[in-house]
Design a protein around this nucleic acid. Sequence first.
DNA 1: TCTGATATGGACCTGCCGACCTATATCAGT
DNA 2: ACTGATATAGGTCGGCAGGTCCATATCAGA
Lengths: 209, 209
Amino acid sequence: MIRVAIADDHRMLLEGLANALSAVADLTVVATAVDGQELLDKLENANAQVLVIDIEMPGMDGLTALSRLDGRLPAVVVTMHTDDDRRQQAAAAGAAAFLSKGAPLPELAAAVRAVLGGENLIESGVDEGVMARHGSPVLDAGAAALTNREIELLTLLGRGVSATDELAERLFISSKTVKNHLASIYEKLGVADRAQAAVEAIRLGFTGD
Amino acid sequence: MIRVAIADDHRMLLEGLANALSAVADLTVVATAVDGQELLDKLENANAQVLVIDIEMPGMDGLTALSRLDGRLPAVVVTMHTDDDRRQQAAAAGAAAFLSKGAPLPELAAAVRAVLGGENLIESGVDEGVMARHGSPVLDAGAAALTNREIELLTLLGRGVSATDELAERLFISSKTVKNHLASIYEKLGVADRAQAAVEAIRLGFTGD
DNA sequence: TCTGATATGGACCTGCCGACCTATATCAGT
DNA sequence: ACTGATATAGGTCGGCAGGTCCATATCAGA
């Protein structure tokens, strides 16, 4: 899981974005702040790996906060207004990426993964190459190894279908096979039972929509 | 579930807000749009009950879209700039509430519930009375009846703590009591086992943060 | 062609889960 | 003072869950 800290003075964007990013399988939001000072304070104990930060904030703005951090964390700067002035200011403050708030969420997620990997997108932006390298979340090692059938089963679990017989009927297989698949899932995800597998299913986004 | 449609030209806010509102127990987002025209198009088939709409959008802006809708749906207008001009324009266009994007998410949720109930907050804003009446989501009948201890247990379940003994240790009670509480939870939520209870715990927002 | 992964199915067994019933102490509300 | 809800704990019991084996058929890839 990539631990992200977010700062934005607009609570709707802040909380909305925090929620959306946490919903991305490989990201988790460990701190949120409505200005630069609060961000610096919270970073003390938050153990974040990447910053997503708005330029425009009352009190200490994003660029000042970035300068104070002096590159301790890679940062993705987001802004309402993507003019060249701001881009250059962001670059000078040590940002590793620069995005419009109008950018699609997957691009933000890709930028977060890219800058954590040390890439600098401040000039190039998020292009196709970045999306190709970082577009799809790197799921947990175990989750990546799940087979199609296991994912089908896991999705049902995440939707609350827990009984062996019920699962067997829905997948048109015997209850014995269901138990075999479940055993594989438990091993791959490192969980012990259906309840934990269901929680993981939801966390990994196997919700069937 | 209250079916909400959202329009905002900034995808981060749009998708983030959609995600955050869907995470609220009694709300679900059935349509999103990046301008007024797309909103009108999507509303044809979306069966939404309430609108959350940004004023500033390229193409057809929020106020124009509201005028076109002519009050068919109650609408909460959100904006970056909450000056009186905009508030009056929103009122004229038929909005039932007017909020800053800096407003906390619970206030937006409360406003959505209030305008669905026919209240007009365009002048008064979201005050304490509104929060008192509409602040807490109306959870499922069963979930509302959960006791504090049951919620503690359910929260642990939603975080993947599934073994009886583990639950007992964490709550400093005997395993027998854990099983008693679980039985109550199953009955109140209408579920059959831990896996289903865990899924419900997450759906209801008992995630422990 | 041979191997490995996938999907299916089975037997067996230990043990925990869930159902049902009972019991006590506390506390808030009447 | 009495009642009801809550939180605690115990007993019993049938059954399913999860672990550990094993077996077969298919299919893609080396």
